[in-house]
Simulated assay, not measured.
Amino acid sequence: MESEHTPSEEKAAATSLGDLLSEVTSDISLLIRQELELAKAELRQSATRAGKGAGMMGGAAYAGLMAVFFLSVALWWAIGLLTGLGWSAVIVAVIWGIIAAVLFAKGRKDIKTVKGAPQTVESLKKIPDALKRNEENR
C-alpha cells in the first residue's frame, strides 16, 4: 500500500534546502510587513480618536471656564447690590484667591509625595553588582 504525500510534502522533497529557507524568510518578512501595516493603521485610528477626544475636552474646559466667569460676574453683581460694586469685586477676587491658594497647597502636597519609580531604580542599582559578580566568576 503506497501512502500519498500532500502537495506540501512533495514540494519540500523536490525543493532544495536553500530555496525552502529563502521561501520561509520571504514569508516571515511578508508577515512582519503586514503586521507593521496593521499596527500603523490601528495607531492612526487611535490617534484620530484621541485627537477628537482631546478637542472635546478642550472645548469642555473652555465652556467650564466661561461658566465660572459668568457665575463670578453674577456673584459680583449680587454682592454689589448689598455692598456696592467696588467692594463686591474685591470680595469675589478674595474668594478666588482663597480657592487658588487651597488648590495650590493641595497640588504641592501631592507632588511632594511622588516617588517616581522606586522599584525600578532599586532594580537598576543591582545591575552593576550582578555584572561584577559575573566577571569575578569568569
Rank of each mutant, 00 (worst) to 15 (best):
M1F: 15
S3A: 15
H5V: 12
H5W: 14
T6R: 03
P7A: 13
P7H: 12
P7Q: 12
S8G: 07
S8C: 09
A12H: 09
A13F: 09
A13Y: 08
A13K: 13
T15I: 00
L17T: 15
D19K: 07
D19N: 06
L21T: 10
L21I: 14
L21M: 14
S22A: 14
E23M: 08
T25F: 11
T25I: 10
S26F: 09
I28T: 10
S29E: 05
S29D: 06
L30S: 14
L31W: 08
L31F: 09
I32V: 13
R33H: 10
Q34F: 06
E35D: 11
A39E: 12
A39S: 11
K40H: 11
E42P: 03
L43M: 13
R44L: 12
R44W: 10
S46P: 05
A47D: 08
A47Q: 11
A47Y: 08
A47E: 09
R49D: 08
R49H: 08
A50N: 07
G51W: 00
A54F: 07
A54P: 03
M57E: 12
Y62S: 11
A63S: 04
A63V: 05
G64V: 03
G64P: 00
G64Y: 03
L65T: 08
M66I: 05
A67H: 06
A67D: 11
F69T: 07
F69L: 10
F70S: 03
S72M: 03
S72E: 06
V73Y: 04
V73L: 04
A74I: 03
L75Y: 02
L75S: 03
W77V: 08
W77R: 10
A78K: 05
I79R: 05
L82A: 13
T83L: 11
T83A: 10
G84N: 01
L85I: 11
G86D: 04
W87C: 09
S88T: 00
A89G: 08
A89E: 02
V90R: 05
I91E: 04
V92H: 00
V92S: 00
A93Y: 00
A93R: 01
V94E: 02
I95C: 03
I95G: 04
W96G: 07
W96C: 10
G97C: 01
I98P: 00
I99P: 00
I99F: 04
I99A: 08
A100D: 03
A100S: 05
A101Q: 02
A101W: 03
V102M: 02
V102A: 02
F104A: 10
F104C: 05
A105R: 01
A105M: 04
A105K: 02
K106W: 14
K106R: 15
G107K: 13
G107S: 15
K109S: 13
K112N: 07
T113L: 15
G116C: 01
G116I: 00
Q119L: 06
V121Y: 11
E122V: 10
S123A: 14
S123K: 13
S123Q: 13
K125R: 11
I127Q: 02
I127Y: 02
I127E: 02
A130V: 15
A130R: 15
L131T: 05
E136P: 01
E136A: 06
N137K: 15
R138K: 11
R138A: 10
